[in-house]
Amino acid sequence: MGLIKAENVHKRYRVGETVIHALKGVSLTIGGGAFVSIVGPSGSGKTTLLNLIGCLDRPSEGRMTVAGTDVGGLGRRQGADFRGKNIGFIFQDFNLIPVLTVYENIEYPLLMVQDVPAPERSERVSALLREVGMEEQSNKRPDQISGGQKQRVAVARALVTSPALVLADEPTANLDHDTAYQVIELMKRMRDTFGTTFIFSTHDPKIVGEAEVVHTLEDGRLTGTRNAKEAGHEQAG
């Protein structure tokens, strides 16, 4: 059984008087330790799918199972607990907390979500700072570091709780190509080191090429699942 299983998932939401049918019967399975990309044009439902996998939203229809749990049935608090234990998030705009230092941003989930004791927090944060190459910047605030460095910190923050899954919605959209590539490489290395499943959405064909599995969404439907090289060449073409 895969880490993630979507079974005929539909998502409808209302914008004013209009009902948007964002996902139309998506079914997929993603295994543990995978490095997966979800691609598709704007409005295809990539973010909606990531939100459902990430337990930030509930399917209107169908079933979404993550790590053996039907996440569609979780309440507000159970959802928070589930995310805090099983899922790490990387955001397009980095979403670091501006009043905290690099160190404190990475420490935050351990302190506020998992109540990890101070010595263990220190050990885990220091280890991740080393892994993402941000030791030197640990006392800096987010506004004192570059976009690439911010995303490195975001990767470390997502991994610090040792989640089974990290979701990254357009993690490289605000980065130049080289930096974007470095961030993806970092994510891949982290997958190799920690065995964490990474799922990221992107538009960038070169970045897509780094994924091992690529799911393509079009107009809310999953239109293909293929290996990375193939998808990268097709989109580049």
Partner: peptide, 11 residues
């Protein structure tokens, strides 16, 4: 939204 997404409880 960020702190809630990463699992901070409402309380």
């Amino acid at each position: 939204g960020t702190i809630a997404a990463i699992g901070t409880r409402p309380g």
